Computed example of a mutant assay.
Amino acid sequence: MENISFRVAEIEISYRPAFKVAERPQITSSKQAYRILLGKWDDGRLELLEEFKVILLNRQGRVLGIVNISQGSFSEVMVDPKVIFAVALKACASALIMVHNHPSGELRPSETDIRMTRNLINGGNILNIEIHDHLIVSRYGYYSFADEGLI
């Protein structure tokens, strides 16, 4: 018999929050989410490149963290649902708020934005991770899918 040796990677899952739960902001509105997120966005890229971020939330709506998911071009950003949900699962998030910017300043969602949001809601339902909102942001304001009844 042949002695075959396999090399496999060890996978470790960890999440080390730096703040107590009571110190984390609690998001109860799209306006709060917008304010928190805008403070964490690189101001020099807001009107330059599309970026996609996720705010991870616990069951009480407290922020576990903000994750940069991807960065795109002037007019689009590719989003891989596997990355979003892998990060949410690793942080034991119960919910999330998706956010991306439109460098043009146009806040209305495209058909692609709407379709992607629906797909991610369906994925979240399977994993028991609620999508609270999807915000499209610019320096001058935001569009909330939840406020507009799309979630």
Results as ranks from 00 to 15, higher is better:
Glu76Asn: 12
Asn58Gln: 01
Met98Gly: 02
Ala9Pro: 09
Val87Trp: 15
Ile55Val: 06
Val54Phe: 05
Val54Gln: 09
Arg108Tyr: 03
Leu127Cys: 14
Val79His: 08
Trp41Asn: 01
His102Asp: 02
Lys40His: 12
Leu57Val: 07
Leu48Asn: 02
Gly105Arg: 06
Gly124Glu: 12
Ile36Gly: 08
Ser5Arg: 09
Ile136Gln: 09
Ile114Phe: 08
Val54Thr: 06
Ile84Met: 09
Leu56Ala: 04
Phe74Ser: 04
Leu57Arg: 05
Pro81Gln: 14
Arg59Ile: 07
Ile11Trp: 11
Ala95Arg: 14
Leu37Val: 00
Arg35Pro: 00
Val137Thr: 08
Phe85Tyr: 15
Ser144Asp: 13
Asn128Trp: 10
His100Ala: 01
Ile36Phe: 08
Leu127Asn: 05
Leu107Thr: 10
Ser138Gln: 07
Glu51His: 00
Met78Pro: 00
Leu37Trp: 02
Asp113His: 07
Ser29Asn: 03
Gln60Leu: 02
Glu47Leu: 10
Leu135Met: 07
Arg115Cys: 01
Asn122Gln: 15
Glu50Phe: 04
Gly61Trp: 10
Val77His: 00
Phe145Pro: 01
Phe52Ser: 07
His132Asp: 15
Glu12Asp: 10
Leu48His: 11
Glu111Thr: 11
Leu96Pro: 05
Thr28Met: 12
Val137Ile: 14
Ser138Asp: 01
Asn125Arg: 14
Asn101Ile: 07
Phe52Lys: 00
Trp41Val: 14
Gly123His: 15
Ile36Lys: 12
Ile129His: 12
Tyr140Arg: 12
Cys92Tyr: 10
Ser144Val: 04
Ala9Ile: 10
Ser104Gln: 01
Glu47Gly: 09
Leu38Lys: 07
Ser75Thr: 06
Ser94Leu: 11
Met98Ile: 01
Arg62Val: 03
Thr112Arg: 15
Arg7Met: 02
